[in-house]
C-alpha cells in the first residue's frame, strides 16, 4: 500500500497540521518508507490472538463519587494564549 500526495495532504488535514505543497511532496517518500517498513507485520500469524490492551494486569479502580478538585479557574487559564472574562478565547466560530 503506498500513499500519494493527496493522501499526505488528507493525513495532514486530519492531523490539523498545515503543510505547504513542497512539504507534503517531501513527506510522500518519507512516510512511504516508514509505512512500507511497518507493513512487514502483516506476515505475522495472529490467528486467535487478542489485541493487547494492558501490558501489566491491573484492575480499573472506582473512586468515591466526591468532588476532590476544582475552584482553580485562574490556574487553569494561567497559560492560555488568550483568556478573557474568565474564559478561553478563540476566533469567532459563529457568524
Amino acid at each position: 500500500m503506498s500513499i500519494d500526495l493527496q493522501t499526505v495532504k488528507k493525513i495532514a488535514s486530519l492531523s490539523r497540521i498545515s503543510v505547504s505543497d513542497a512539504e507534503a511532496q517531501a513527506m510522500v517518500p518519507e512516510l512511504n518508507n516508514i509505512l512500507g517498513w511497518v507493513e512487514q507485520l502483516g506476515e505475522v500469524d495472529v490467528t486467535g490472538v487478542q489485541p493487547m490492551t494492558a501490558v501489566i494486569p491491573n484492575h480499573q479502580r472506582l473512586r468515591e463519587d466526591a468532588v476532590t478538585d476544582g475552584d482553580v479557574r485562574d490556574k487553569v487559564l494561567a497559560n492560555a494564549p488568550q483568556a478573557e472574562h474568565g474564559f478561553f478565547a478563540v476566533p469567532k466560530v459563529i457568524e
Binding site: 505475522v44 490472538v49 487478542q50 493487547m52
Partner: peptide
Amino acid sequence: DAYYTQAQKVRALIA
C-alpha cells in the same frame, strides 16, 4: 485494523 489492531496483536505475541 490492518495497522493498529495487527500491531496490538503482535504486541501480545512479543509479551
